[in-house]
């Protein structure tokens, strides 16, 4: 069980924050002529290192703007670190925002294949799991309706069903355990717990220490882009709870 699945080594990420966002040529030329282009450097992550072994479940805690989402995006390969390196063994299912790969003119059925392809799966592979996906999402009646007519809950259900129908080695959860109504939420939590039992490695982001204690066995706290605590889940959650309480006073 000591095989390292996710390893993050000395990762730092630098953003160039521009006070006024220049996104067109006209303004850019004007600003250059007036010498008004100035960037403010902002380190979203500073020298982050940690490893997650196979089957471990890591909770990532932190206040808004601490760099949690940036960290997960880096692990998922969406963002490239300015310094340092990230290695992930196996297939990652990033459930950062469900349904990001949907096309709203496409029907539910067509989107299943499109979304699957976005995650790198073949048509055949998705076909084998198609019935299971539709059944889990409970969208049988609406599967031939264009997604643009779906409610946001229906979209999220479909996204969740696709993302969990495949068998990833690493699951990245960014506060997605609040999908749909209470009934579907229970169902999805159960599905995720099932996946845990199969030995999947999890990175879980939340503000809720109760949820983190329930799900994870290790945790880290991010603050202003740095890891300020790293260790066993209960210890770290206690520290976080103290931080929250001291902030209130």
């Amino acid at each position: 069980m000591s095989e390292v699945v996710v390893s993050v080594e000395n990762v730092s990420i630098l953003f160039n924050l521009n006070k006024e966002k220049v996104d067109n040529l006209k303004e850019y030329v004007i600003k250059i002529l007036k010498r008004q282009i100035n960037f403010t450097e902002f380190w979203a992550l500073r020298d982050i290192s940690f490893t997650v072994n196979k089957g471990e479940r890591l909770g990532v805690l932190g206040f808004n703007g601490a760099g949690k989402s940036t960290l997960l995006k880096t692990v998922a390969g969406v963002l490239k670190p300015t310094k340092g390196s990230v290695h992930v063994e196996g297939i990652i299912a990033p459930m950062i925002e469900l349904g990001a790969g949907f096309d709203s003119n496409y029907t539910g059925k067509e989107n299943i294949f499109l979304y699957g392809a976005t995650m790198g799966y073949s048509r055949k592979y998705i076909e084998e799991r198609y019935d299971e996906i539709v059944a889990f999402s409970e969208l049988e009646k609406f599967i031939d309706v264009p997604i643009k007519n779906y409610s946001s809950g229906m979209r999220a259900r479909l996204g969740f069903s696709i993302a969990t129908a495949v068998e990833p080695e690493v699951l990245i959860l960014d506060e997605v355990l609040s999908v749909g109504d209470a009934k579907f939420r229970n169902k999805s939590e159960k599905k995720i717990v099932d996946m845990f039992e199969k030995g999947i490695t999890v990175l879980f982001v939340s503000h809720n220490t109760d949820q983190v204690r329930r799900i994870c066995d290790k945790a880290i706290i991010l603050d202003k882009g740095k890891i300020i605590a790293n260790g066993e889940v209960n210890e770290v959650c206690d520290i976080y709870d103290d931080l929250v309480n001291s902030g209130k006073k």
Partner: peptide, 9 residues
């Protein structure tokens, strides 16, 4: 943009 921001492709 929606995909590129969220998933690696």
């Amino acid at each position: 943009a929606g995909v590129i921001k969220k998933v690696y492709v």
